[in-house]
Design a protein around this nucleic acid. Structure first.
Lengths: 215, 215
DNA sequence: GCACGTTCGTGCGCTTGCGCACCGAACCCA
DNA sequence: TGGGTTCGGTGCGCAAGCGCACGAACGTGC
């Protein structure tokens, strides 16, 4: 495991040297264990998180407890956009889907930097726009796609944010993310394995044929 | 029909007198006929639209032509957030769901005003945040709710943005918005009518019992 | 008042996914 | 090496929703 470097996060890496230098003292490297709840729905947000090697899922939780993933954030993004979007709280829950590390920045610092209106603001807005697009896609997938198609999409979203092609993730958890039954995931994963696209064993999924996953 | 007044839009109304005065010369009142496509997915955005008496639906369209509504915008919001979020284009289609009027502002003006960093920026970001929340809800509803529940939610979203409790909308169109079959809407609407919550006839839906719709 | 297009109702077979229950098998740890 | 626990596979019955097809009711325009 390398020493965490802020530049591993694409947003931080895109900042100018001066901006990064300004933020650096307040950037704190944190390790993100699997299953850790970064934000709880409706709670106050203290920090924004810039993932480097971890992946964070954004889940929207209903009153009755049912939930579904609305977006995935990895080294290309930031968790906690609500902080600079104006709300102190977020309506979604953020859960670590793949363990790793991240940098976090106190919310107040983030706001200050954002308000300066420089590259940081621009970057954050662009990323938020991308996040919106991802959410819109999720919404439509939930309606029109089969479990198998959604599983494919989800696998792609995940491995694109990891250095390896192996995910550490039980089918139960995937089912939770997608908001479907575990058995449905089992079935879909079985098909994909038969087709030679993926292979898995107890909590580890290896993507063999990325091309064919994109269909 | 009153003469359109920018203050009918909540976002414009929330601006200070000075700001509104600055924008006023560039604000153009436009009428929005039913079914009009305000934005096409992937196309360049010339203007942002501030609805006053119309309602605009944001649809995300898949490659195969299937689509689903991801958000509803009325007098409380603005259509075309991508313009100040950094992208020149939007991944979604915007369609007029209920005829009425709106004010539009050239994209460049919007950007300028946004970049000033004043109340406008703050307002736009807050609204975008609200839009994100609405989209997240839509995503989860698509997964967990029955057609009837979704119809209820959709009706509420719509009448909340209209002065009356009567919607002019065929079931076919509603089905399009929700991304379901027309027959499914017929069935759900039939149930609601039997329950005395709504009444409808050929393209006109009247909401009778708002309370019970919220379940 | 009549014809036509639009909108809504209904029926049927079929697929997908859910809920539940149970078992085998892999893994972890002592 | 041998528990016990966690995962994954499988088999029901059931409900929701889809696709298709057809017909009835409404309302508009001539």
């Amino acid at each position: 495991m390398r020493v965490p470097n802020p530049k591993q996060n694409l947003l931080l890496a895109a900042l100018s040297a001066a901006e990064l230098k300004r933020l650096r003292p307040n950037l704190e490297a944190v390790t993100m264990p699997l299953g850790d709840v970064v934000y709880e729905s409706g709670r106050h947000l203290d920090h924004v998180y810039f993932p480097t090697t971890c992946i964070v899922s954004l889940l929207y939780v209903l009153e009755n407890g049912a939930s579904a993933e609305i977006a995935v954030v990895g080294y290309e993004g930031v968790v906690g956009v609500s902080i600079f979007m104006g709300g102190e709280t977020t309506p979604s829950r953020a859960v670590v889907q793949s363990a790793g590390s991240a940098f976090r920045l106190p919310g107040a610092m983030m706001k200050d930097e954002f308000t300066r209106g420089g590259a940081m603001q621009h970057l954050m807005l662009r990323y938020t726009q991308a996040l919106i697009t991802q959410m819109a896609q999720t919404a439509v997938c939930n309606r029109h796609h089969s479990i198998e198609q959604q599983l494919c999409r989800w696998l792609l979203l995940s491995i694109d944010r990891l250095p390896t092609n192996v995910l550490t993730m039980t089918q139960e958890l995937i089912a939770n993310m997608l908001g479907v039954r575990r058995e449905g995931v089992t079935e879909a994963a079985g098909k994909l394995q038969d087709a030679g696209v993926i292979s898995y064993r107890r909590g580890h999924i290896k993507v063999l044929d990325r091309e064919r996953l994109e269909a």
